[in-house]
Nucleic acid binder design. Structure first.
Lengths: 340, 340
DNA sequence: TTGTAGGCGTTATCAG
DNA sequence: CTGATAACGCCTACAA
């Protein structure tokens, strides 16, 4: 029994060996109490558990990760932390992953594929067991990194061809659906307000154009695109611009609720009656949409469920299972309220 | 030269030894190229850098953390991810910490000290180099954990006595300030709407009461407290309740902008003129406050700056420096708009 | 059911 | 400036 006496550790934290020494057993047995308790005799186990509690032992994740070659962590890349669309997505993700014992490394890409690439590079150093990423707008290098890392990946928010795993909705269809709703209501000079111009917004724009086209309507003067981030203030600004550029517009599809709220508030300020003089539709169905006056017609998107489902799919992949189907379309719903 | 040939690793990832072998040097030298390049000769360095790039080498953080006994990560505990107050706080935190090379482990406590304790327990396993935590409402066990871990901690959002490091604002003073504003405007039957009832809300309530008391006003029937989470919808509900309970109320201080917006929208719906029939004040100055109609009087709180400053303070602590002063009051400002 | 040996990938230490 | 050696704390594999 040449047991080297374990000295206090570098960090001052209690280690398995110290516990083992106290109990008069070996580190591996203490490890078993933590990971496979059924493999340890009742007696030893309760004794060890006592000392663990007494000493306030706390496993060292770095050591565990190194030994097991997995980290029990998942990297989650979203465009923005200040957009509730993505924080709700995150909540769905975390409710699933935390329960399953995973930590999430959250990265916000600021809507930039380059930033996304650099975040991914950084997070791969942590050997994540899985990756959740927003959309399909990755740089070539990002794709390369994802492939070479051999870590399971699930894409969120959009659907696509390809053979990637994904959970989302058809942004194109949603944009078309709400535009059709406006057409059905009898509006014809239907404008579009777009900001940020990320791929999902562009899909919605394409859906809007398709709906108009299908209806034999053409209203290019009503399109206003701005690549700066969405905000309520920008909605107000864009409305002002639009009314100069195309005063005859009778309905407006805003690429998200923030813009739409800005438009609504600006209409209130100017005394423009909604929907009588101008109908307004948004996208996402954020919390204020149901409460503003008039209440906002919009597309409800299942953010929480997308996060939840994507995380579940990733869990399967991390277990080595093949999720079926590989793509889940969680749909959307048109919520007609007073503003159209 | 009994160099064991390094086999492909467990994870399939390139390691320092493999690079070393390729170059005909040792792992430690490769490590130096990464960490202290000035200690390696120009020639060897460029050669090694070439192979690193060629093979797409990626350091293993777990191994590094284990060897260095620090993780380059910081745990950040906030009450909620779906409240923009805290996501803005987070952005301030991350802008500083990411730049300094730290990762953030984000935990949302759901406003529960018990949940906070369990998150802290979990995150301590990662050996964070520092901890940012919201407020001072910790369980005894949490305090014990923080002390024993000997990890630097900075508290955010509130000020307090004690000797803890903190960056925040005096919630009491802010609540008192906006109430005084209402008093100055001539309102006397000033109600208070509170939700969630976390410590910061209770401080604001205390400030409200103090202001009334100082003015010789007493209006207990106007206080409505609800421990469920804040939301626009709850604001509408509480207004309804309040108008039954205290119809003579002439002004309302809502503990945050969400409630205030709900109140405003409900007033619009009912045709209650703001501020003529009822003045409404909020707290935080969230984005919509400036744009709703009438625009909302509120208290602007420096969330981003608090996160930023707290992170800088933590950085100092992690370097072993003593930040001066230990408590930073970043203040608030009264933003008077149309609703009062 | 328990323990021994050895390694995970990196870095600190100290020698050359 | 470079390298050999020995950790870091835990776990896998195998043996007893």
């Amino acid at each position: 029994m040449s047991t080297r006496k374990p000295r206090p550790t570098q960090t001052g934290r209690v280690t398995l060996s110290e516990i083992a020494e106290r109990v008069g057993t070996s580190a591996i047995t203490v490890s078993r109490v933590l990971n496979t308790p059924h493999l340890v005799s009742e007696e030893l186990r309760t004794q060890i558990e006592g000392v663990i509690a007494e000493l306030g032992y706390m496993p060292n994740r770095a050591a565990r990760a190194l030994a097991r070659a997995r980290s029990d962590s998942v990297a989650v890349l979203i465009p923005s932390l200040s957009n509730t669309v993505f924080t709700q997505l995150l909540e769905g993700v975390r409710d699933v992953l935390n329960r399953a014992g995973y930590r999430t490394l959250i990265g916000d890409t600021r809507y930039s594929p380059e930033e996304e690439e650099s975040l991914l590079r950084a997070y791969l150093e942590h050997s994540p067991d899985g990756i959740l990423i927003t959309g399909f707008d990755q740089t070539a290098a990002t794709r390369e990194l994802l492939n070479r890392s051999r870590v399971p990946v699930v894409h969120m928010m959009e659907m696509t061809d390809g053979d990637a795993y994904s959970v989302g909705l058809e942004q194109f269809d949603a944009g078309r659906a709400i535009t059709r709703h406006l057409l059905e209501r009898g509006y014809r000079r239907i404008g579009f307000l777009g900001a940020q111009l990320d791929p999902r917004v562009l899909e919605r724009l394409a859906g809007y154009r398709a709906a108009l086209h299908d209806a034999g309507v053409n209203y290019p003067v009503g399109e206003l695109l701005d690549s700066t981030p969405s905000s309520i203030g920008l909605g107000a600004t864009l409305l002002d611009k639009l009314l100069r550029q195309a005063p005859q517009t009778d309905a407006l599809f805003c690429c998200n609720d923030d813009l739409a709220l800005g438009v609504l508030f600006e209409c209130q300020r100017r005394g423009i009656r909604v929907p009588q003089q101008l109908a307004v539709a948004g996208f996402n169905d954020l919390a204020p949409a149901a409460w503003v006056h008039p209440a906002l017609t919009t597309i409800a998107t299942p953010r929480y469920e997308i996060g939840h489902t994507a995380a579940e799919m990733l869990l399967q992949l991390m277990k080595g299972e093949k999720p079926e189907p590989a793509k889940k379309d969680l749909g959307f719903s048109l919520v007609v309220r007073e503003s159209t």
